[in-house]
Amino acid sequence: MGRYAFVVKRLLLIVPLLMVIVLLVFLLLKVTPGDPARLVAGLRASDEDVAEVRQELGLEDPVIVQYGNYLGGVVQGDFGYSYRSRQPVIDVIGARAAPSLWLAMGGLLVALAISLPLGIWAAVRRDAWVDQAVRWLSLFGVTMPAFWVGLMLIMLVALPTGWFPTGGFGDSATEHLHHMVLPALTLGISLSPIQIRSLRSSTIKVLESDYVQVGRSIGVDGLPLIRKFVIRNTISATITLLAIETSFLLFSMVIIESTFNIPGLGQGMVHAASQRDFPAIQGYTLLFALIVVGVYLIADIVNALIDPRVEISA
C-alpha cells in the first residue's frame, strides 16, 4: 500500500481508542462527588437558582445525551466553558500552550544532549569506568524528583549569581529563552536517567550484533562505526523511547511549571484541580491524553517509514 494509505490506515485505527478516551474523561467527571451546578451558581445561591443552572448546563439530560453533546463538542473543538472564568475552555487552554511548548522542546533538547553521548559512550566502553560512572549517575538521578532538581538549580545557580530569573515566562522571545534555561535544564535532567539507561541498552544490543562485528572486521571503527552501524540501528528504539516518555514528560512539566511559576498547561491543570473547575480539568486531561496518543501514532508511523524492512511501496 502507498505511504499515504498507510498513514490514513493508522489514523483510522486510533479513532476507537480516542473515543474510549473521551468516554473515560467524560465518565470521570460524572463520578466525581460534588455538584457542578452548585459550584457554578455559587455557595449562596438558592436551590431554584442551582436548579436553573443545572438545566442550563444540560445536567438534567440523560447521561448518553450529555456524552453525545460532549463528544460532538470535542470534535468541533468546543471543550465547554470553564466554571471559574466563564471562558471557553479551549481558549483558557490555548493561552497556556506556548510556555509549555517552550519547556517541552527545551527539556527534550537538553535530555537528548545529555543522554545520547553518555548512553552511547557507556555502551561502547562497557564495564569501563565511564560505564560505571554513567550508570551510577543515572541511578542517582532517578532518586531526585523534578521539583527538587529545580529548586536546587534555583538555590545554587539562580539565587547566588542572579543570572537567571527564578520564575515566570517573560514577554519577548529573548525573555522566554532566558526564563526557560533553568526549567528546561531541570526537565532535561529529570528525563535523562531513563533515556541513558534505554540508549545504553539498545546500543549494547546493536554492538553485540553480528553485523557490527562484520563492520569491525573490515576495519570500520570509531565514529564511522557509530554513525553507520550503531545510530542507524538504534534510531527506531530511540523514537519509541521518546514516545513512551511522553506521559512522564507531561507529568514532569506539571511539576516543573509549578516550581518555576510558569504559566503553562501544567500549572493550568493544577489550578483547575484545586479550584474544582470541571470542564477545565476535563479539557486538560483530554488534551494530555490526546498528546500522548498522538505522539505514539507519530512515532509508529515514523518508525515504519524509516525502516527499510517495512514494505511500503511508493
Binding site: 550484533s209 553480528d210 553485523y211 557490527v212 562484520v214 563492520g215 553507520k228 552501524f229 542507524r232 540501528n233 527499510p308 524492512r309
Partner: peptide, 10 residues
C-alpha cells in the same frame, strides 16, 4: 550466519 551478518540499514 548470513541472515544476521549484514547491516539491515545499509
Amino acid at each position: 550466519e548470513p541472515m544476521t551478518a549484514l547491516n539491515p540499514t545499509m
